[in-house]
Nucleic acid binder design. Structure first.
Lengths: 337, 337
DNA sequence: TTTATTTACTTAACCGATTAAGTAACATAG
DNA sequence: CTATGTTACTTAATCGGTTAAGTAAATAAA
């Protein structure tokens, strides 16, 4: 059986395709009786409209893109949940693109969006994405876009972030209160705004507590797990850290791994705080003190903002900024006071 | 600036749109010189073809759908990774749909696929999806579809699974070897094939080791976390379990939570094995013995199968079945012998 | 030299829905 | 009894590519 089209409905009912189309969209131009007849036949023949015909004509795809570095990370997974909850409610479809921290891949993905494939974009950039990036400024003018978490500070666009600096400040203060005097911060990339904001809050806190801000305090790690572990072993050997702040989930677990391998006891030898949304944080050995980001809410907020812009053309999307606070959840990888 | 279309290129070069289209697709009908001129102008004007115009005409969207219960689960996250790796390589786009274990939602999502929105579907069904489900048999005939992990056994279709029964058998034997005599299995749903296959392997192992297969051995839990915890507390109080097999990741962490709250020591009071891909399993307190599923490979295999069917129309997709083995990884939540 | 074939295009239909513009029939207002 | 609206449609263009069928000119074969 061929696909049921509006034309088939039209022929069966001896009406024009225009009438069918209008009847299906409940236009006031069509009589109630005709609408019912159309609806009934549509249901009977199991008519499903072709979304691409509609997209082509209306220049709207009812689809958004989510561009993220990876999915196997509880922050991004939860963010997708938040995004999807809004998208599903609004009847939008969600395309997922993974950049795997590769900015070249990211560029290719973004370039495709000039085709009109999606009505809007939600993005968290790669660790490689430079602050003044590849045509992102360009794309921002062509299509509604909302950055979340990993934003490009130099690009004028809507941004949903968490209070990175404040959270890092809080984490640092907590370590200091727990007796740490030699604290290190592990960051993903010097290009990443969140890394920089977290480092900023960290250094401010060190200063506020009268601790020296030596160069070794901030370490940029690799996207490669093995390389990162090597690096961690090296700095743990060289520096006498008594506290570590891991600014990503992967780094936090890497610290646990390395500590195990180096026989460093947490928290006795090294106190650890991780920026993480791991649901298992409380069951780790020892349970992990975390800065927990509102991942679901950030995704939801980003999507909500995007849909507001899609509905209301005059909405000044690029001026929107929202900061949703993270929470310090104290557990046993740090020494509470 | 208006969007650049094939027509604009045609006008500038004093050629027909047909020529442009063919030149861009590197048709042999077009001279090398013309191709070069077209390519050059296309690049200059930053021409990006409209995917929906193409989809409409070619009746192919170069898009696949992934329908899963949730993303915030390491199995599904890794499976997406596997799927995406293949899709990206083939230049396909990936739509994600979350059913949140709601079969009504699932039905709605699947119904939409009759529209031609996607060229193929990868699905892991909800816990509610009955064995003879809502038009799934129908859809299978209309569109290439591959089930992975949570399959519908009654539907004739391509399926990628893991060796659920064997893995459960192995897990059970491991517990028996560790001294367990009263083992319980926690499953997500009596409708779910994976639950049933795991229960099957479990019961077989009990029989093989001369342990009674009392009714209380298999417990079906809820999708709601709080409800599940209540249930676990109840059965842990009533039954004298010394071993538990949690057949989903969420159930495994629920067991940890409940044990903590009931002051049950793992593994002294209760040995625990979880079907889980948690990267943090080894850092849990105690580290969790797992049946680790090849999530990435399953996603990859499912996608590979789907693309094979999309490329080769005569490929007998629905006859394809692959079983990829899971591994028992022994850690400290069980007592090794 | 005539016919057949190849090359490099063009024309126009098409995919399936949407919508501006047009129209016939009837109702209401002035 | 016209003029004006309103109702309920239809016609035809359109979105932006793709492709079957056609054609003119050049080349090869007979």
């Amino acid at each position: 059986m061929e696909n049921v089209t509006i034309r088939m409905l039209a022929e069966r009912l001896q009406l024009s395709t225009a009438t069918i189309s209008k009847a299906l969209s409940n236009s006031h131009e069509i009589s109630e009786e005709t609408k019912q007849r159309v609806l009934a036949l549509a249901r009977e023949l199991n008519y499903v409209p072709n979304p691409y015909a509609s997209s082509l004509r209306k220049k709207a795809s009812h689809t958004i893109a989510v561009v993220i570095p990876e999915v196997a990370d509880s922050f991004f997974a939860e963010a997708i949940n938040g995004i999807e909850s809004v998208a599903q409610e609004k009847g939008y479809h969600v395309l997922i693109y993974l950049t795997h921290e590769n900015s070249g891949k990211e560029r290719g993905i973004l370039k495709d969006f000039q085709s009109g494939r999606v009505d809007g974009v939600l993005i968290s950039v790669t660790t490689e994405t430079a602050s003044a990036p590849h045509g992102l400024d360009q794309l921002v003018k062509e299509i509604p876009i909302v950055f979340f978490d990993r934003v490009c500070e130099d690009v004028i666009a809507a941004k949903i972030t968490t209070d990175d600096a404040a959270a890092a400040y809080k984490a640092t203060s907590h370590l200091v209160a727990g007796g740490c005097r030699q604290i290190g911060l592990l960051a993903a990339s010097p290009h990443l705004s969140i890394s920089n904001r977290r480092a900023e809050g960290f250094l401010q806190a060190l200063a506020a507590h009268g601790l020296p801000q030596n160069k070794a305090a901030v370490t940029y790690c690799s996207n490669d797990h093995a390389t990162t572990k090597q690096l961690l072993k090296k700095i743990f050997r060289e520096q006498q850290y008594d506290g570590i702040i891991a600014t990503t989930e992967k780094l936090a677990t890497a610290v646990y791994e390395v500590c195990e391998e180096m026989n460093l006891r947490i928290p006795q030898d090294l106190q650890v705080i991780g920026f993480s949304n791991l649901s298992t944080a409380r069951f780790l050995n020892p349970s992990l003190t975390t800065i927990s980001q509102p991942a679901f809410d950030m995704g939801k907020a980003a999507a909500t903002l995007l849909f507001k812009a899609l509905k209301n053309n005059s909405f000044a999307l690029s001026e929107q900024q929202q900061v949703i606070p993270s929470a310090l959840i104290v557990r046993k990888s740090t020494i509470a006071t």
